[in-house]
Amino acid sequence: MSLKFVENVKADVTSDIVYMMCPMHLLKLDEQIRELDREQVLEILTDYDGALEDIPQWCDKTGNEFLGIDEAEDFYKIYVKKKASL
C-alpha cells in the first residue's frame, strides 16, 4: 500500500497518543470516530510506525475515509474522515 501525504488538513477533533503503543491507535480511532458527527475529520497524533499501515486498513474495513498523513517533527498526524452514511 502506498502512503498518501497531505498538508494543512483542518481537523474537528485531535487525539494525541504520542508515545503510546499498539493497539492504542486503533482503540482511540474507534472510540473517537464513534463520537464524531458524519463527515467530521479526526486527527491522530502518533509516533507508532505501525499506525501508517493499520489506520488505512482500518478505514478500508470500516468504510471511513483515510485522508492521509502529515509528518511533524517526531510524530505523524493522520487524518480520517467519518463516513457519510452508516
Binding site: 508515545y19 503503543m21 493497539p23 492504542m24 482503540l27
Partner: peptide, 15 residues
C-alpha cells in the same frame, strides 16, 4: 505527554 514505564496491554489508557 509521557512515555510509559511499563509497556504491554491497553490498561490505564495504554499508559
Amino acid at each position: 505527554r509521557l512515555v510509559p514505564l511499563i509497556y504491554g496491554g491497553i490498561q490505564e489508557n495504554g499508559r
